[in-house]
């Protein structure tokens, strides 16, 4: 085995690191969900529906966080709310507004169930952090 001088090893390490950064930059998929987008697919897929894509940005223009997260009782954790269409039709959760008066009604299935089949529940578009989080 050839023994390399320390400086050569360091230089090799450095170039590997830079190449890695470049590779990551190139490989970074050019698909970015909008920051705070939520995929809800607890039961949709199993019922042959597309997953729900919930855009936080759209809703926070119209409502403060507390309307949904306090008045309507949405837990602040994607997937933690046991929402189903029965509850929505009863006026709970999304159904408080999605009733044809404030926002579109439950007849417009595809407007909420608009995600790619097979997506996992969770917060997306928060790629600026990339920490070990469990969003």
């Amino acid at each position: 085995m050839k023994i390399m001088p320390v400086s050569a090893i360091q230089s090799k390490r450095l170039s590997t690191r830079l190449l890695l950064i470049l590779a990551l930059a190139v490989m970074m998929p050019n698909v970015n969900a909008e920051y705070g987008d939520v995929v809800l697919n607890r039961i949709s897929g199993a019922n042959d529906m597309r997953p729900v894509i919930f855009p936080h940005w759209f809703h926070r223009i119209r409502f403060r966080c507390k309307v949904c997260h306090d008045e309507l009782g949405f837990e602040m954790r994607a997937g933690a709310n046991q929402i189903n269409m029965g509850k929505i039709i009863d006026g709970q959760y999304c159904g408080m507004c999605h009733n044809g008066e404030i926002a579109w009604s439950v007849d417009e299935c595809h407007l909420c169930h608009s995600g790619k089949p097979g997506l996992k529940t969770g917060i997306r578009g928060s790629n600026k952090t990339g920490g070990p989080g469990r969003w």
């Binding site: 698909v31 909008e34 987008d37 597309r50 407007l111 608009s114 995600g115 997506l119 578009g125």
Partner: peptide, 28 residues
């Protein structure tokens, strides 16, 4: 700055919602 819905990796490009839902860029 804002990805279009059809290219955001979440929305199904085949979904009839594309073209009806507001695009992030148009509001943000």
């Amino acid at each position: 700055r804002w990805q279009s819905l059809v290219e955001d990796g979440l929305h199904d490009p085949e979904s009839p919602a594309i073209g009806v839902l507001q695009e992030p860029a148009s509001a943000l």
